[in-house]
Simulated assay, not measured.
Amino acid sequence: MRLKAEVFVAALTRRLFAEGAMAAIERRGAAEAGAIFVRVRHRDGTESLAAPAPQSVFEDDHPVMRLFEMRKTRVPEAEISEVLARERRFDPDIWVVEIETDRPEDYLDLAEG
């Protein structure tokens, strides 16, 4: 069973806060099953975007509740904003969480690739 989106986001933000990092909910989506996008701000001023990994990446016995893929890596902020605007038009129930870290893999399960 997968965690509800709002529970996953709450746990992610609390973990970051507990470690002295920054996190903010930029957009609240559907509480039960909204897709979660994570906007990663890096210290050098660039951003990355972690998006839900395609279902084809999951194995039947995969223990990870939510798996992400890096859709964009270390690009200007405007590129991330553009992708998120397209995603919102496609699915208005998405979540957007902003975190500040140079190591998103410390907080998210990332698909290999």
Rank of each mutant, 00 (worst) to 15 (best):
E69D: 12
P52R: 00
I99Q: 07
A31H: 03
D109C: 11
R28F: 08
V96R: 00
P76H: 02
P92K: 02
H42F: 06
L16N: 04
R88A: 09
L110A: 05
V75L: 03
A50D: 05
R103F: 07
P54G: 05
G29A: 01
R27A: 08
F8M: 08
A31Q: 04
D91R: 00
R39P: 11
V83R: 10
P104V: 06
A11W: 06
E77I: 13
A5D: 07
V75N: 04
R66M: 07
E100S: 13
P76G: 00
I36D: 03
Q55D: 15
A21W: 01
I99T: 02
G20E: 02
I99Y: 01
F17Q: 14
L110W: 01
V97S: 04
V40D: 06
R14V: 12
H42N: 09
I94K: 02
A53T: 05
G113Q: 02
A33S: 10
S81T: 14
A31T: 10
I80E: 05
V75R: 01
V7E: 11
H62K: 07
A33C: 01
V38Q: 00
M70E: 12
I36Q: 06
P54Q: 03
A78G: 15
F37V: 08
P52V: 00
R14L: 12
F90S: 11
A23E: 04
F58C: 11
V7C: 03
S48D: 06
A18V: 08
V57A: 13
E87W: 02
D91V: 04
